[in-house]
Structure formats: structure tokens, C-alpha cells
Simulated scan of single mutants.
Amino acid sequence: MGGAERNARKRKQQQTAARSVAQARGVAGGDKKKVVAITVAVVVLAALVIGGVIWTTSSKDSTEGKVIGAQTGTSAPGVVEKRDGAVVTVGKPEAKKTIDVYADFLCPVCKQFEETFKGQIEEQVNNGTLQVRYHMLPMLNQRSDPPGYSLDSANASLAAADAGKFLAFHDALFKDQPEEGGRGFDKAQLIKLGQDVGITDPTFVLKVNSGAYEQEIQDAYKKISTDPSLQQDFGNGPGFGTPTVTSNGQVVKLEQDWVQKVVS
């Protein structure tokens, strides 16, 4: 083989080697880019998960340290509140019509009921046409974290009724309703609300802290939840649910004009 041929062959081998190195570097570079992309995706995903956990925890504990907003009472002169066991009756004694309202302070649909119909009910109560019998129930007692808020709030509302402040207390708890599945208001917060709506009787604090009416509330709920006259079909067979309203012993269909139908 002549020198020119050897030199040509050598140059060809060098060019082939150079292309191989370049290709190898290209593959390595592509793999590196893939690794970087995967790493970034994992980091972003982890950040989203951590952020979601932080947001969920923050949302769940949103009531911690919160002062429940006191509501200004709008009852007319002559409207009285009277507790009888686990039931609170609100209205003027001469009212000819009575309804029973069954609700839970943690129930989101009960809050919607209050927002939709409170004004209509209040108008009929204030003009002496209607009395309302409130049954505050611990139906969702296991749906707060920790469990127990439904019972604590129902008990505190009865203690507030003893001081003539049931409606103000009731309205405030629905206005600032805790999230179902999250932290409810603790007893100290319920006591603070009572004080903010004007309760000065020291026995209120004792009743809230001791759960004075808890047994009455639980006994009443057990009876109510199994009462055939209060059963409704919610799509999966008959059962009891909140809110439920009755008039003359019959469950009321909660249409937009149901209040007017009851009093007319």
C-alpha cells in the first residue's frame, strides 16, 4: 500500500471515529436532557403535592383562633325565646301558626336554607303570625375534626336560649359555619360568641363547658331520626335528613313560597 493510500485511509478512519464520538455525545446529551426533564417534572409534582397538603391542612384548621362574628338581633318587640328540653320556641305567644325546623350547625344545606328563607321566616315571626320550634341536632357529630362540634354547638345554643340569646347565637354559627370535615369551633370560641352577643350570666359558661344539655339533645335526636313521620326519600330510600321542616305534623316541601303557603 503506497503512502498516499495509507494517508487517505488514515484520514477516513479518523473521520469515522470523529463521527462516532459526535454521535455518542449526541445520545448522551439527549439522555441528559431527558433526565433533567424528568427531574424537573418530579420536583414540580412534589411541590404540588406538598402545596396541596399545606392548603388542605390550612383549610381544615381555618377556624382555629377565629372569633365568630356576632350577629345583630332583628327580633321585633314581643318576640320571645323559650327553651323546653332540647327545643327552642321563638315567636309571639299569640301566633296561630307553628313550624318545626330540624337542623345541624355543621350542615351546609342547613346554611343554604337559612340564607334562602331566614328573611321570610323572620318577617312572619315578627308580625306575630308564626312561631318556630328549633331542633338543633348532632346529626353530623362525627363529621368534624375532631368529632363533636355538632353536639357542642347544639348544647351551647340551648344555653344561649336560657339567656334569651338563641337567635343571635344561632344566626352567628350559620353565618360563620365551619367546613364539614374540618375543625369546628371549640367551647372557648362558643363561650366568646355568647359573651359577644350579650350573655352575661355566668351559668352560660358552666353549661357550655359541662355539656349540660348533651344527653337531652342525643335522646331527642335518637327519637327524631327514627320517627316515621319525619322520613323522606332522598333518592336511596326513606330516611331522616337536615334541614327538615314540618307544619301540622307534615313534612313541608321547601319550595320558594313554602313560608307563605304555611301561614296563609
Rank of each mutant, 00 (worst) to 15 (best):
S264D: 08
K96D: 15
D176T: 08
R6M: 15
Q120H: 01
S144I: 03
K192S: 12
I224N: 01
T129R: 14
G30L: 03
C107S: 02
L48Q: 15
D227Q: 05
D227G: 03
G52L: 12
S225E: 09
G2I: 14
S62A: 11
F169Y: 05
E179F: 01
P108C: 07
E180N: 01
K253N: 09
Q189K: 02
F174Q: 07
V90N: 04
Y102R: 06
G184W: 05
W258E: 07
A95H: 13
G69D: 11
D104S: 01
R19T: 12
V205C: 02
V87R: 11
T56K: 15
I54R: 03
R25H: 15
A188L: 09
L190F: 03
A76P: 00
S75G: 12
V49A: 00
E216A: 13
V197F: 09
A156L: 13
V245M: 05
F240H: 04
G184V: 02
Y134F: 07
A220C: 10
R183M: 13
D171W: 05
G239Q: 04
G194M: 12
V90T: 01
A46E: 09
G194K: 10
S247G: 08
W55L: 14
G235R: 08
T98D: 15
A188W: 10
M136L: 08
A28T: 08
G85R: 08
K118A: 09
A103H: 07
G30Y: 02
N126G: 08
V125C: 01
Q195M: 13
K175G: 03
L190E: 06
